[in-house]
Design a protein around this nucleic acid. Structure first.
Lengths: 234, 234
DNA sequence: GTCTATAATTTGATAGAC
DNA sequence: GTCTATCAAATTATAGAC
């Protein structure tokens, strides 16, 4: 069956070229500027050909979302193996935000455009039954549970609630950068670190080495802690 | 000059009708569905007439943004006079989130569509020289400074950074509701409260009456605090 | 599989009559 | 001030030749 396989392989190649061109357009001009004609021009095929590989523009968009989400996951992967749960979470979320600001149009397409797109991205990367969204959610929730078990988070903290809130915080940081660059803004890293501190705060318990200084809010008296925080934007 | 005044008044009336119709379309179908023709049909005028009152579609969008932002500010106003800075901030941000989820298309138009729109909204409501964005920012930053002065926030907390981070957090909560309704989600109020607690946390110092129980994260040992948190979504 | 050609819409915006 | 009529340009999507 070599002939049939070559044909499907060639078909696959063109599919990839279509997605490549689409990705370039989206990254350069944003999703709103993505049209079938523009894609066709870019790959030097007729618009009609696109419909042999994708049902419509929406299917191309969904494919791009799956790609983009996979790319995001890939950028998080190096940090998943960090032993300490707090450091793991901080590294993951820093990478998450970095991805968002470095690939604004991709991030926007996946998370800020159509509610169905992120759903498509999640369902696509299904592993062991449940989708990639669930898996990512668990990843964070489990780390929070670890911290709770170590007494580094309040026992009253619901890890599901905190996961959602933590995600919302980081998403908000990215989203504001993308659509509301209005204020004389704080460097990105400074805001991210402040947020991570607020949520994961003083995580030096059980680590012994007091790596993260307890830059924690006070309960009774004002602490003598004084820490300037210069930081570089992305 | 009664005649001229009547004419400008009548002109103003039509301008309002255009904006009314536009607002309805945006609220019902979203900003993407707002077209000059649709507006003209709604008010039973010809499309050409619209151009006598607005230069183009973008100017209508900006006008809607100014309206929407003013509406948001209005919904925050009742809480600005709360004496306690922590309670004030919490009330303000709860109202902010509530506005966002109750007016999704308006919120989306102002904060999630075009970067220039939110700028227009801010500059429009200029008071005493600086724009409404600056004013709102100060509002939050000042409250944070109050809390800091009372020793209820760490002295190391930069109120400008925290303001931006706090805004990002609340914006993220709203934005995720609008564009990523994917998970079996936590009730809105629960997430908002968790976030407010994480940022403003145990604020019972100096209030005497211990109104807010110290649902704070631990530093050394696990606290006996146990608090179930049932809450209603909006 | 790929193309040409085109249908069918929808869009923002304007010229000129009244 | 308002309308009719229309332009010029996009868009998605398809029919049918090759």
């Amino acid at each position: 069956m070599g002939i049939a396989e070559r044909k499907t392989r060639e078909k696959q190649v063109l599919r990839e070229r279509i997605l490549d061109a689409s990705r370039r357009i989206v990254m350069r001009e944003g999703f709103a500027a993505l049209s079938m004609r523009k894609i066709a021009d870019a790959i030097e095929y007729s618009p009609a050909t696109l419909y042999l590989h994708f049902e419509n523009r929406d299917e191309i968009a969904r494919a791009l979302c799956m790609e983009g989400y996979a790319q995001l996951l890939e950028s998080l992967k190096p940090h998943l193996s960090i032993a300490d749960p707090a450091e793991r979470l901080k590294a993951i979320w820093r990478a998450y935000v970095a991805f968002g600001v470095e690939h604004p149009q991709t991030y926007r397409l996946v998370f800020m455009e159509d509610p169905t797109y992120v759903g498509a991205a999640f369902e696509s990367a299904a592993q062991d039954g449940d989708d990639a969204g669930e898996a990512a959610f668990r990843l964070v929730a489990d780390a929070l549970d670890e911290m709770k078990a170590q007494g580094r988070l309040p026992a009253s903290a619901d890890s599901n609630v905190w996961t959602e809130a933590l995600w919302a915080t980081m998403h908000g940081i990215v989203a504001l950068r993308l659509t509301c660059p209005v204020f004389p803004r704080t460097p990105l890293d400074t805001v991210v670190d402040a947020a991570l501190d607020a949520w994961l705060g003083d995580c030096s318990a059980h680590t012994g080495k007091a790596a993260t200084p307890p830059r924690k809010r006070v309960t009774r008296a004002a602490p003598p802690a004084k820490k300037a925080k210069p930081s570089s934007s992305s």
